[in-house]
Design a protein around this nucleic acid. Structure first.
Length: 103
DNA sequence: AAAATGACGGTGT
DNA sequence: TACACCGCCATTT
């Protein structure tokens, strides 16, 4: 209920536009803790995963899909990203073209 | 208060 | 590109 780091993470997570992806480190940075990427991933995992928060649009710094607690796991995540127009290079996301940039 | 946990990031090999 | 190691952090027990 507080405006804690965790809440900010979810907030930014929801701010990711369709067709774009963000890295854990980027969200952490926006939340004010550039090195808290680890914590960010932790929050994604405990999150309700449902469309409430598009945690599937969050990938690792190199574009690799590390994990997904949602249904289907990584396989489903990859599929969703592809469907949203995000370019996938094998198991890696083409960050050069699909990484979200905060205006 | 201290220890354990984990969907990370960067660097070196 | 893949793998191993270390450093960093918030939350929970």
């Amino acid at each position: 209920m507080k405006n804690s780091f965790k809440d900010k993470v979810y907030e930014f997570c929801r701010a990711i536009p369709k067709g774009k992806v963000a890295t854990y480190g980027q969200i952490a940075r926006l939340a004010g803790k550039p090195k808290a990427g680890r914590a960010v991933g932790l929050f994604m995992r405990i999150n309700s995963d449902a469309p409430h928060t598009p945690c599937h649009r969050v990938v690792a710094a190199d574009g690799s899909l590390n994990g997904y607690s949602g249904q289907g796991g990584l396989a489903s995540k990859r599929k969703m990203l592809l469907k949203e127009g995000i370019i996938l290079r094998g198991s890696l996301v083409d960050l050069l073209r699909s990484q979200w940039k905060k205006s």
